[in-house]
Structure formats: C-alpha cells, structure tokens
Amino acid sequence: MENGERIKREAPKRQNPDRGFANMFGQPVGGDTNGSSSTSDNVWSENVDRGVKLGYKVIEDQILQGQRFAEKLGTGSYSAGVMNGDVQDLAKNIQKYSEDSIQFYSKIIDSVTSEMSGMGSKDFMSGNGMNQGVQGLMESFTRVFSNGSVGETGANTSRTQDANGINVACSVSSTRPVEINVNVQSADGTLIIDRLYEHDIDKPPITGVTLERDSNSRLKLNVDISDEQPAGHYSGVIYDPVDKNHCGTLSITIAD
C-alpha cells in the first residue's frame, strides 16, 4: 500500500455456481476401500442423478398406491378398511339414511311440482315469484343425516353438494340422530355462522358450529352437538363478513 501497489485477488478457480447434489456433502474418499477405482466427476454425477430419479419414481409410486387404496376405502380420516366393525356399520347406516332422505325429499318435490303443473295456471307457474319459490325450495333440500348412536365417537364426515353447485363437507359429532339442512348462496370468501336458535327460547342455542374452507377452498361445516343440547329444531343465518350480508341458512334438527 505504501508504494501505491494495488492489492489484487487471485482469479477464482470456479467460474459458475455449483448447484449439484453430488457436491453437497463433499466428495467421498476411497481410503478405506482398498484402492477402489476412482470415480470420475461425470460418472459420479450420473449415478447421483439416476439414484435421485429412481428414488422419486419409487416414492411417487408408493404415494399413488396409497391414494388409490384410500379412494377405494372412501374419503375421510377414518378409513373403513382399518376401523372396527362398529364404525363400518356406522358408515353404512349414514349412507343408508342419506339415500333414504334423498328419496324422501325427491318424492316431496315431485309431488309439489306435479300438483302445480296439474293446475295449469300460467300465472301460478311463472308469476309472483312462485316458480322461484319452488326452485328455492328444491335448492334448499341439501341434507346430511348422521346417526351418532355408536358410543363415544359419533364423529362422521360426509360431503354433499348444494343445489347451487357448492360443495359442502359436513363433519358431525353427536350421540343422537341429527338432520342438517344447508343452503349456501355464495361460493367465495370467508363465511360465518352465528348461533342456531330454537323457537323455544328456554332452550340454549347451538354454538358448536363452524364453517371453514379447507386447503382446496372447499367449504367444510363442523357440527358438534353436546349431549346436554335439548332435542328440537334449531336454525341460523350464514353471513359473509366482507359484504356484511347474509348468504345462506343452516338448520339442524336433533332427535330425542
């Protein structure tokens, strides 16, 4: 520095970034391999790449097998294949109740619409919002039944579709049969459910109900009915907190 000579760094040996897996942990030495043939960098890299590709093939195959297996058993955490007979029976019962209820309400709707068609009144079918009323009635018949009479874990998950095309997964925890009626008119954003009230004001409201979105933005309804909750018909409103408008209804009927 005193004689004005500039300090220069030596030119780096490596001119490009080294991002290979092969060098991540340094090169092995063959000191304990009794003079094994030294592996060239190219062969080393090829073997590593091949190994990693093969590894991903193996593990992706395994994951795919697991998914197929899960699909075969049905969705939900409680896969029927690994659960005991009681829970499998419960799943069958839920399915049966759901099928029965759909048939039941389909008959009601058929009956209502055929009666109105039979009246032949143009005004009745097209005017005064009655047709919309029938549509709304049909749209609201999205029901999930839960028979929770299976001891301490009466938690079940079902997925249903609102007539508007909105998927709603329902997770119900109850030791008594419960009927749920969901009508959602908004597919976007966060939705909130307030408390569900009974006509009889002496009965406490249901508070254990939440509506959330899963990682795929699908709506999931969680219903937790305590054993102390009196039987009855409870209903409430689904809110959109952003628009501050109500965008659906939820009613729950708890059997004795």
Partner: peptide, 25 residues
C-alpha cells in the same frame, strides 16, 4: 468384499446415498 472394491460397488452406493440425502434436503 474385494470384488466390491474392484468393481467400485462401494463408491457407487455412496453416490446413491448422497443423492438420496440431497433429495431429502
């Protein structure tokens, strides 16, 4: 054991192990 050295089988397995570790990272 000597054949494994002769044919580079030890080094080969080391390379695969390092590849697996890189993927793990």
């Amino acid at each position: 054991r000597r054949l494994m050295d002769e044919y580079g089988s030890i080094d080969y397995a080391r390379e695969i192990a390092h590849g697996m570790a890189g993927a793990a990272m």
